[in-house]
Amino acid sequence: MAVISRGFGGRARREAPDLPPGQYLTEDFPVLSAGPTPDVPTEEWQFAIRTESGQTLRWSWDEFHALPFEDVSTDIHCVTRWSKLGTSWRGVALDTLFADVETSEEWVMAHSYGGYTTNLALDDLLDGRAWVVTEFDGEPLDPEHGGPARLLVPHLYFWKSAKWVRGLTMQAEDDPGFWEQNGYHTHGDPWREERYWGQ
């Protein structure tokens, strides 16, 4: 057991009864370091979904904004042990984006501007549990937090909510993404503390 340092408080945080195990509450915005922040002008931004048959659905920034937007209020949990309660976002549900997608594959790789990837089960993205969001707290999502658009999959650890997302590719197997290849758990359920490989 680590020794407690008298008077050390650390970053502002509160006790909270219903956090997943091992998490602390923060008022800050937890960000995950993935390297340099890509700068993606919205005129160049695109979001695409590609299936095993080669079918590709593509949205420009304007086309994307013609889709129905939803307000999402949710808790988020970062594997670095921060949780933030009641965050508010605006974006398009993946149910909407997947409406015309025909696939028999069960796994998805999310790709980001800047080259990062994260793997997800299609099941984790549907039924009102995942969004592509472009606003945080009523403001356009700033690049440090994944703007212009990021994935939001709040029931999984936050690295699954890929920043700077540019597309999803269906895959037959649960091939691991960037953090998953490097040690993080392939699924990442905070309530089951799926932080690392072998847990």
Partner: peptide, 8 residues
């Protein structure tokens, strides 16, 4: 450094 609630 470890705080009283275990935060490090």
């Amino acid at each position: 450094l470890t705080a009283e609630d275990g935060y490090q």
